[in-house]
């Protein structure tokens, strides 16, 4: 029953993404043709032709319905820069981004949770102070700047452009090694900027949990300190953190845009940058709808996962 409600909510959220895409790129700019052709030599006749082609001479509600109908058929318009359907351009770039964001998030979450747990348990120890300080500093660092710095500092140690070299021998293994080699710098950058928030959230969640009286019960039973932590405190503290991991996915996406730009990693983030320099509005619109939609869907998964893991929510 409540799961159905959640799914309904997700559908509402997705429709809001779609509406937002329309609103941002058709309504706010006033006359999209003026902004979409900004910086390109156009004549009034060409603009009128474009207007007719995009259906901008129709009333706004009609435009919205057209936009919606096309979207449902998977038509997000045509990219200026690539002269190809937006959806095709986007789908080519999904793989590299998934690889980069996936590896980085996984490592960042594990690292952040481990540091957070250790820090909270030995609160105010040297370990806690140093790791918190490092985390806060990295959290304050602009991703792209860190990337540029890393690139400069490591020199020729790691490749800093693209995802693979053209001269790599064919065959799965050598290709994989090459990609992994290229992955090092971008993922280190992304991890460094992202892990801190997981650490801070985990740390404060566990600190909060350490006041709980069931931990006194556990100690009274004769449990060793590390068992009290592993069996009782951490599982409870972990639950709220899990949803936050997914909620912060938006920040990872933001980090990916600049990281991919710095390292010319051929994913969605770099595509964002290319669309901006165009500016290629059809592509930007598509990218916004796709990334926002993906994050919304991920959060629904997070919610369902939480429902499975926490018996209190499951029953409610």
């Amino acid at each position: 029953m409540r799961i159905a409600g959640k799914l309904g909510g997700a559908v509402v959220s997705l429709s809001m993404v779609v509406v937002l895409g329309f609103f941002l790129f058709r309504v706010i700019p006033g006359d999209p043709v003026v902004s979409w052709t900004r910086g390109r030599p156009t004549t009034p006749e060409m603009q009128a032709a474009l207007r007719a082609e995009w259906g901008l001479d129709k009333p706004l509600p009609q435009q919205f319905l057209d936009y919606l109908g096309k979207l449902l058929r998977g038509d997000m318009g045509t990219s200026f820069t690539y002269s190809r359907p937006v959806l095709d351009v986007i789908s080519e770039r999904v793989g590299p981004t998934l690889l980069l964001v996936g590896t980085s998030t996984l490592i960042a979450v594990l690292l952040g949770l481990w540091l957070g747990i250790r820090g909270a348990w030995r609160r105010d120890s040297r370990f806690d102070r140093v790791s918190t300080g490092v985390a806060l500093t990295l959290w304050s660092t602009p991703t792209f700047w860190l990337g540029m710095l890393l690139m400069m500092a490591t020199g020729d140690l790691f490749p800093s452009r693209g995802m693979r070299d053209t001269d790599t021998a064919p065959g799965f293994f050598s290709q994989a090694v090459d990609v992994a080699h290229h992955l090092v710098l971008p993922s280190v950058t992304l991890i460094a900027v992202v892990y801190a928030q997981y650490q801070m959230v985990m740390r404060s969640s566990l600190l909060e949990e350490l006041h709980a009286s069931y931990l006194t019960t556990a100690r009274a039973k004769g449990l060793r300190d590390d068992l009290v932590r592993r069996r009782h405190a951490v599982p409870n503290a972990l639950l709220p953190v899990l949803t936050l991991v997914f909620l912060h996915l938006g920040l990872v996406v933001a980090g990916a845009i600049t990281t991919e730009t710095v390292f010319t990693w051929p994913g969605l983030g770099l595509l964002f940058y290319e669309a901006l320099t165009g500016p290629d509005y059809a592509l930007l619109q598509g990218l916004m709808v796709v990334t926002a939609g993906a994050v919304v869907v991920m959060n629904v998964f997070a919610d369902l996962l939480y429902r499975v893991l926490d018996p209190r929510v499951r029953a409610a």
């Binding site: 009286s213 069931y214 006194t216 019960t217 009782h232 599982p235 409870n236 018996p311």
Partner: peptide, 12 residues
Amino acid sequence: FQGAMHALNPVR
């Protein structure tokens, strides 16, 4: 302990 709601681990 007093207050069994809090003295028991809520997720076990």
